[in-house]
Computed example of a mutant assay.
Amino acid sequence: MTAPDATSPAATSATSPSWRDSLAVYLQPRVLIVLFLGFSSGLPLALSGSTLLVWMAEAGVDLGTIGLFALVGTPYTLKFLWAPLVDALHVPFFTHAFGRRRGWLVFAQLLLIGAILLLALTDPARSPLLVALGALLVATMSSTQDIVVDAFRVESLPESEQAAGMAAYVAAYRIGMLVSTAGALFIVTGFEAIVPRGAAWMWGYVVMAALVLIGTVTALAATEPAQSARAEAATQDEGALTRVFHAALGAFSEFLSRKEAWVVLAFVVLFKFTDAFSGNMTVPFVIDIGFTRNDYAVIVKGVGIIATLAGGFAGGFVARRYSLATSLWI
């Protein structure tokens, strides 16, 4: 009796994971670690963005100043510039105590907590410049955390769990954003019942800073990725500048050496191209056809978050069950 051909249905069913296996991957410890780190990554975004703008508007800051605060998000766009530094340089004590990735994770999260607490102590009405500095520090440390979490996720998960890990990360990221927007506003409202409005905002941000500890505890409970440990051992005799150069050069050369790299790059750009345009036009379009601001808020924070979570987990489930090309078509 001959073995089934690799392309036959029998071979496919033997190698393709079952539906139960596809669902069980979300309960793998490695995926759960990525999930909690995703929450920690999504939490700070609104604290230097939409939630901060609500605080400033309530404090009576003029619209022109509020509009300039869009520049605070610049570190999220430019984080690729210092990613090689995070990849190659050691953090005194932290790298030795926790490892290459976990050391940077704990270090960035502790600085992030400090930046959020600094922002909590500011007064938007009296010192908008200090608020801008605090928000810039929050965005910088948050984007640094994103760099490390992305590297940790890729190095920690085997290829079969990458899609599920990304789905869990995105879902938790969205939940973190929801907590720091709607959740933070509800918390501030609760504090207003016992303290003045300014103090309520301060304590709301203190609670948000405390929630970052979820990511810190997760980083401490995790183990250093084996791939990171091997890379660290291979470069331990190199100087700091040499490691940075090799990290920057390696990131680009490794990608460009892949088959059809430019096609992949074009796909990613075009994939996000329409989303960027439609994202900017969604609000005026919805308002123009008769919906109110409250209607739009309910859709984005209610139905929108449900659809995002469902789509993220469905995508990870499909990608584990089928090939990447088939999953993209689906």
Score class of each variant (00 low, 15 high):
196 P>M: 02
206 V>N: 10
230 R>A: 10
125 A>N: 08
104 W>M: 04
145 Q>R: 08
23 L>R: 07
116 I>Q: 09
111 L>P: 01
266 A>C: 11
109 Q>D: 05
296 Y>F: 15
220 L>W: 09
273 F>H: 07
88 A>M: 06
169 Y>D: 13
12 T>K: 12
52 L>F: 09
72 V>N: 00
219 A>P: 02
288 D>T: 07
42 G>Q: 13
282 T>G: 09
260 E>R: 15
12 T>I: 10
32 L>A: 15
221 A>E: 02
13 S>I: 03
214 I>V: 07
169 Y>H: 14
289 I>Q: 05
152 F>N: 12
321 R>P: 00
237 D>G: 11
129 L>H: 05
265 L>H: 01
258 R>M: 08
120 A>F: 04
41 S>E: 15
100 R>Y: 02
239 G>T: 11
14 A>T: 09
91 V>N: 06
54 V>I: 12
82 W>K: 10
107 F>T: 00
313 F>D: 06
300 V>I: 11
99 G>N: 04
169 Y>F: 14
102 R>C: 13
307 A>R: 02
2 T>A: 14
230 R>F: 04
77 T>G: 09
153 R>D: 07
47 L>D: 06
25 V>M: 10
297 A>Y: 12
266 A>L: 13
149 V>Y: 12
149 V>I: 15
125 A>P: 01
215 G>V: 04
285 F>N: 13
290 G>P: 08
254 E>R: 07
99 G>L: 03
277 F>K: 03
197 R>H: 03
137 L>M: 14
231 A>Y: 02
255 F>D: 12
277 F>A: 15
10 A>W: 01
163 A>P: 12
129 L>Q: 11
92 P>Y: 00
79 K>R: 09
259 K>Y: 11
